[in-house]
Amino acid sequence: MAEELRIGVFVCECGINIAGTVDCDGLTEWAKTLPDVVFAIKNRYTCAEPGQQEIKQYIKEENLNRVVVASCTPRMHEPTFRRCCADAGLNPYLFEMANIREQCSWVHSDRKQATQKAKDIVKIAVAKARLLESQKELEVPVTQAALVVGGGIAGIQSSLDLADAGYQVWLVEKEPTIGGLMSYINKTFPTMD
């Protein structure tokens, strides 16, 4: 960890979704005062193409090695921004998100209080970002065979589909014969055959 931390904060207005309640200019300026933050900028829509381009551009120009985006929930755009970082050559796990929309601007109406909370949210995200580490997704091979448990109509269908596709299938059935409940039935609806 000899590397010098260079964190970039990208504040999203989300049109008026965030900017309507949170003072995004103030937030951006304030973010610059946080430890190891070397760059902060505001964008109208960070998730849109220009917004993403901006992240990629500044990762390179400002030599950023950690990225914090203050916008919506990570459950929505974390994958988007991770990809964006990866495109710019930054490990996607060196990215952190600050949710100032779903959990701030949308649920509070007092501009002062909401802005204060947004600052805290960004501060907490930066605190985490300072300690982020690169991660590698492990890749494992898939054994070319399938287990099917149960030889009723579902197990039979799955087995045949897989076997017809050329895969080895192990079909395990508890009873002495396959067929399951289907084998008890003599007529079926709605065709009555």
């Binding site: 030889g151 039979i156 087995s159 299938v169 009873e175 396959i178």
Partner: peptide
């Protein structure tokens, strides 16, 4: 059902129980 019994890619283990995975 018959197709399962005949299929060269299917190993049918009837009257069998999973012990461990």
């Amino acid at each position: 059902m018959m197709d399962v019994g005949r299929h060269p890619k299917i190993n049918l283990l009837a009257y069998s129980e999973i012990e461990e995975i």
